[in-house]
């Protein structure tokens, strides 16, 4: 009995030390658990939930196939021209509201689909849907600039060649009526079908 008491008296400080270490360890693990996000490490050394969060963002740019569901005639009109590769969004804007309305209109015919407006000349305009007849839209691609290839390579199955133009020379050669006008390209060309 005396032996046990002596043992306890002599080792009490060790027990206290052990308890302190255990408490400290438990506290550390608790803090650590609180600081590591729930899905961390499930797939790799990162928060796996971030993948779903990033993937859940909405798509903004729409593919032409969305537009052509209703505007199939435009698709046919430009089918054999180089403009088949040019996205609808480049000349008509994002059209998010327009498409949302059109989708709703499928079920309820009384939904009004807002028509296209004019373009304000800003490539990042807020206008949802517009029709541009502005040379700036055309020249973004068609103005001859140092660095452009000598001709269009085959574009998505359209085996046509196109030589770049110097717009000023072109307008002079073709005797454009109003070479200074913003709409001068449309004196001879249509947007969808590029034949002169």
């Amino acid at each position: 009995m005396k032996r046990i008491l002596t043992f306890l008296r002599d080792t009490r400080h060790l027990l206290v030390l052990l308890l302190l270490i255990a408490a400290g360890g438990a506290g550390f693990m608790h803090l650590r658990g609180g600081m590591i996000p729930e899905s961390f490490g499930r797939i790799g050394p990162y928060r796996a939930a971030a993948l779903d969060e990033i993937a859940a963002r909405p798509s903004v740019i729409m593919a032409d196939s969305t537009c052509l569901k209703c505007h199939a005639d435009v698709g046919e009109e430009r089918a054999d021209t180089l403009h088949t590769a040019v996205g609808c969004i480049h000349c008509h804007g994002l059209g998010r509201q327009h498409v949302a309305e059109a989708r709703r209109a499928v079920d309820s015919p009384d939904v009004e689909i807002s028509p296209a407006k004019g373009w304000d000349g800003n490539f990042r305009t807020d206008i949802d849907l517009y029709i541009t007849k502005d040379r700036a839209t055309c020249l973004a691609c068609h103005q001859k600039v140092v660095g452009m290839p000598k001709e269009f390579k085959k574009i998505k199955g359209v085996p046509r060649e196109f030589k770049w133009i110097n717009v000023d020379e072109h307008l002079e050669d073709e005797e454009a009526e109003e070479p200074e006008s913003r709409e001068t390209c449309f004196e001879c060309h249509e947007g969808h079908n590029t034949e002169p």
Binding site: A55, A56, S59, I155
Partner: peptide, 18 residues
């Protein structure tokens, strides 16, 4: 990433006319 996981092309690829 949000587009390609829905089998859409990235915006720049979708927009490139050539």
């Amino acid at each position: 990433y949000h587009r390609i996981m829905r089998s859409e092309a990235p915006a720049c690829v979708e927009a490139c006319p050539v």
